[in-house]
Amino acid sequence: MSKLLEIQELTRRYGPRRGVENISFALKEGEIVGLLGPNGCGKTTLIKLVMGLLQPDSGSVLIQGRVPREAHHLISYLPENTYLGEWMAMEEAFRIFGDFYADFDRAKAERMLGEFQLDSRQPLKTMSKGMQEKAHLALVMSRHVPLYILDEPMSGIDPAARQSILDGILQNYNPGSSLLLSTHLISDVEMLFDRVVFLDDGYVRLDRYVEDLRAEEGRSVDEYFRRLYAPAKGGVHAS
């Protein structure tokens, strides 16, 4: 397994505030990695750095040896919030993806949309949050790329829809491709991961294979993080 994504000593601050601090980790081909941590811990910042939407203060990101701005054809990216015009229907989004990405499989996108029981002519602004998320997923998972990066694909969505989004991810990602998925909802998705990288206040607090963690700690990933995290915050009044 060779390295698909390599992040080295990456730092990015927002003024005095910490964004991400000296982060290093690599993603191998075929790995599904969970980027975990509470809101505001640097997950989205890290993903934006990988996508070239933010510039680092120091350190480097390489995707198959390329810098982010030359690697967009290698990554299918689902942002935290929509990146489509709210007036757009998926038809227009499919057209854009078809225009720009040679690897976009329109038939697959339409099939996924059908499975989610969505209409490609319905404007995004008339869809519920869950419907929007599914529509975006149909768009993003229908590219054939070595790396999928999904930023909080399940936040703000009811549990029933979460499951169908998870199934959508699992059933549609390209075998052999890697997946980096950020979430603060660990328990829902921990079955999905090979490895979890836990960010805390901009730092990598933990980077471990989940099956090793379960075997060695005798706990679920979710439970492990709850214990790990709670004392650091005083251990009272978990919200």
């Binding site: 070239g52 701005r69 967009h72 942002p79 015009g85 854009i96 720009f100």
Partner: peptide, 14 residues
């Protein structure tokens, strides 16, 4: 705006 997340990740040069 939020659409910048798409525009800047399309496989085109700056």
């Amino acid at each position: 705006s939020h659409q910048g997340y798409l525009t800047h990740t399309l496989p085109v040069t700056a």
